[in-house]
Design a protein around this nucleic acid. Structure first.
Lengths: 390, 390
DNA sequence: AAATAAAATGCAATCGTTTGCAATCTTGTA
DNA sequence: TACAAGATTGCAAACGATTGCATTTTATTT
């Protein structure tokens, strides 16, 4: 670089064009050797030496200098820009590797106005700490991580406490991330609405049947609830219990499906029991216990709104020596890893988190590309195990 | 800005110093009004109008203009720099809020060479997918998230697949993050060593007794193993089984403690059974099953290397109608949320992940500040429940 | 009122990339 | 040999904040 322009300048001063051209060719070809020579002979040998020997971190300009090309070329080469000759590109990539160089993302993000980061927000209700221990949610996060990485995006993980609910500003306008994936609709859509209004590109995991102006990806919860109840009824259960919170968007759908199944079996809604609980095992355990104490065993089948809830229920039943599945059959929801390891192994409605994660990422990418997007429903599937075997 | 310098330039051309000064004072005080006037009268009214009315995102310079101050002042005000008068600071912060402004992190990161991001890496072994479903690991991640946020840091979540093991380059030199927290030592320390060699500031969750030149935070696993075995022996168990992988750093410590307890009870190592398994419930279930099939029930107490392993073991035992705890007692490790909900409720060695997470973050901060740091051991505690009640 | 110290603000360079455009090099063809 | 077209490369201006230093304002003292 220095070499080139210095020579060029020198030559043009004297107006000896052809000579200058020859010089340039010469210099260009042997730029690197020349450079070594040059720095060794000079007193001010700061720059190159430093970047070679010391920790003074190498910059793109430094790398370019080492390679005897301009920063533009270096930049393009490292970014696989087809403008650059293949040989040059390889040479630079190799050099970069050798020197442990990698592009400064802060700089490139500033320049390109793109971060290649997606913020994943666990949108918990106020009970905070508790539900974060739900293996299902964390499975979703893990799958999102995979799906994002597969597309070259990084994942910034956040809980809803961060950023005081100012998601659009905090994440998007501040250029911390390009888009948001919000896991869980929560009980109010306030924060999400605000973010959407402030032009934050986002996708939500939740109830895809909800009418919103942002895309929601989620399972067919209604069908799930239906299949669960249907399974119980078809194995001979007479009195069902729904264990979950009908206020919560997704659970409400499951509850609808549950009721539909009853109707299809000519059973009155009033003959079913609904115990409204938070979506944690402890809540399930406590409330089911209490319900049995107060009302005795008035049911022979339970549709639990999640596997964790089912786990809590199982414990309560076992402690009272109520046999599962012979006395009470039970169906969970989610199919977390350990559902199979419960005793008895839990029949449950499996949510395809892997596919869901991919869909969410895909949808977000489309949204970022300015394409129109819409909510999507993910298929679910009943997995039959022992907790409903009669 | 424009106003000031234009006037200044103009005046200095004509060498009318005092007049220029007066002008400046005047303009400065009424900068905002003047600006409005000016833009309304001119044909090219681009900048201000745009930033006011349209989405053309507001920049610090724009905000400063609106407030009639320089960008320096605006920057300092928003960063709570004490150089700025309190009134000015408040005014600017309010203005920023009103206009939904937030500083561009890409830019400030570039300038300050600091990201305020910590990358958390799940350092899984090749079995990948599987262990990420371990609720314990994810609990650690969740606690790290809390601890980081509490210090104003954000969390970039990554699995070990990302970055092809080039952690130092990928995360640190590229300025994606300031430091690394690596969850799990894995079976080889190769990647970690490489990162350390490349000057990546990092902290590891693992076995703190390991001799390394980087800090490791972890539980007192040896004591944990000891307490677990001790508990079983003291309730009358005669033949113990260790269910876990003695190759794995942390598990090895637990195994040491286990053996120590045997010794203290004058029991020969050979009288104990070791079943080496991966740290998943499925592996535990499978292998324990197989072991019983091959060798019959030769033990009356199990030290499981994790709660998930204990869960797998429980299932195997239950399926064979072996009663827990009367025939076989069992102790887990970790105290995951649902340990209490197993049936019987699991006696286990609790790891204090919250404290651990805080320590890791604190240690990393110290490391980033250039202070010397060292490994730290976190206290553990035996939580007694029903699986050891005899 | 002037001089001085202290508080508050502004100027302008800088961080390390990317990219439109201009300049140069290569190649094929007349 | 010259020339145009196409392939490569370089120049230099952004991107939007931070900060040392210079300058102005305000408060304090003589």
């Amino acid at each position: 670089m220095l070499t080139h322009s210095a020579v060029f300048f020198y030559c043009s001063l004297f107006n000896i064009g052809t000579f200058a051209n020859d010089c340039k060719l010469f210099f260009q070809t042997f730029a690197f050797f020349l450079f070594e020579l040059q720095t060794k002979n000079q007193t001010s040998r700061t720059e190159l030496e430093l970047s070679l020997s010391q920790e003074s971190k190498l910059t793109l300009a430094g790398l370019a200098k080492l390679a005897g090309v301009s920063t533009s070329t270096a930049s393009r080469a490292l970014n696989d820009n087809p403008l650059i000759k293949e040989e040059t590109r390889h040479r630079l990539q190799k050099l970069a590797q050798e020197h442990n160089f990698s592009l400064n993302r802060a700089a490139s993000r500033l320049r390109t106005q793109k971060t290649n980061v997606v913020a994943v927000i666990l949108n918990l209700t106020d009970s905070t700490e508790q539900s974060i221990s739900d293996p299902f949610l964390l499975k979703v996060v893990a799958d999102l991580n995979q799906a994002l990485n597969a597309r070259g995006y990084e994942m910034l993980l956040s809980n809803s406490l961060m950023a005081k609910g100012e998601w659009a500003n905090y994440f998007i306008h501040s250029q911390r991330a390009d888009g948001l994936i919000i896991v869980g609709q929560g009980k109010s859509s306030e924060k999400i609405d605000a973010a959407v209004k402030n032009a934050a590109p986002l996708v939500v995991w939740g109830d895809p049947t909800a009418k919103t102006d942002y895309p929601i990806i989620g399972s067919d919860n209604r069908l799930g609830g239906y299949l669960a109840a249907q399974k119980l009824l078809s194995t001979g259960c007479q009195k069902l219990m729904f264990l979950g919170d009908p206020e919560h968007a997704e659970m409400a759908q499951r509850y609808q499906g549950f009721k539909q199944a009853l109707k299809d079996h000519q059973i009155s809604e009033d003959d079913a029991i609904t115990v409204a609980i938070d979506i944690t095992s402890h809540a399930a355990y406590r409330q089911l216990n209490q319900h049995i104490v107060s009302n005795g065993l008035q049911f022979d089948g339970i549709v639990a709104s999640s596997d964790m809830v089912a786990l809590g229920a199982l414990k309560a039943l076992k402690e009272r020596y109520i046999n599962v599945p012979s006395e009470v059959a039970i169906v969970g929801f989610d199919d977390i890893t350990m559902a199979e390891l419960f005793h008895p192994a839990l029949t449950t409605v499996a949510q395809n988190t892997k596919l869901a994660a991919e869909q969410m990422v895909e949808t977000l990418m489309a949204r970022l590309a300015g394409e129109p997007v819409k909510s999507k429903m993910i298929d679910i599937e009943l997995v039959e195990r022992h907790s409903t075997a009669r």
